[in-house]
Design a binder for these strands. Structure first.
Lengths: 110, 110
DNA sequence: GCGTTAATTAACGCTTATTGGAAATAAAAA
DNA sequence: TTTTTATTTCCAATAAGCGTTAATTAACGC
């Protein structure tokens, strides 16, 4: 039920420096509990929790419950959606748009 | 002098539905005067002008003066920057990450 | 059951963004 | 020069977002 989402919500969620840092941390380290993420910015647990909620509601991260911990990870579809959008305009921004990139474009556009 | 910019600002600017619609319109139609863009949303000219300013300051669009009109267009680098970011995590979100996409990745990352 | 740990929710204030309307600026047309 | 068209800036009001502390829920070990 958190599938049909437009890119605007995604961009809005990533538009905050703290949330962007959270996402990059998760992209690099994989799945992490909320507590560990406190390190990415100097803010309280509640503040972190609310940022995670925003990311969750935007469909950017998924939450998994493990005992009293909440494990977060980035949803691949979210990043892929951003890539698909940018790629769909590749002939505009890419000076060297050629057969090779067109192949990937077709592939990821599917 | 509006080159060194982080993705966060870009995402923040695109996080607004009106501004995202403006950018998509410009991506599809190319260069357009501010007046023509009024059509993308039901808002006053001043409101539109302010949205365009945000996009300009985020480095997403460029402005060209033609007589009394201001012509706007998307800066290719802005969309490319988004693509580069997503591509840099392609091995995470792409289930079928292979040699072909790796080639494009190397290419666009340059 | 109790206390501890992990995380979220609630309530509050503060700062920043956004908006509409009016006025200002600038160039072209009459 | 006066008028018209296009766009931006100024201003006041409203709305949204973010952070903090305090309270709450949930699960573990003793």
């Amino acid at each position: 039920m958190s599938e049909k989402r437009n890119l605007t919500d995604t961009f809005a969620a990533l538009g905050d420096p703290t949330r962007f840092a959270i996402v990059e941390r998760l992209l690099q380290d994989g799945e992490l509990p909320a507590g560990t993420l406190h390190g990415v910015a100097d803010l309280s647990a509640p503040a972190m929790s609310r940022h995670l909620r925003v990311l969750r509601e935007a469909g950017i991260v998924s939450q998994r419950v493990d005992a009293q911990r909440r494990l977060y990870q980035v949803r691949p579809e979210a990043v892929k959606a951003i890539n698909d959008w940018a790629i769909s305009y590749a002939d505009f921004w890419s000076g060297s748009f050629d057969r090779l990139s067109a192949a990937l474009r077709k592939r990821t556009a599917k």
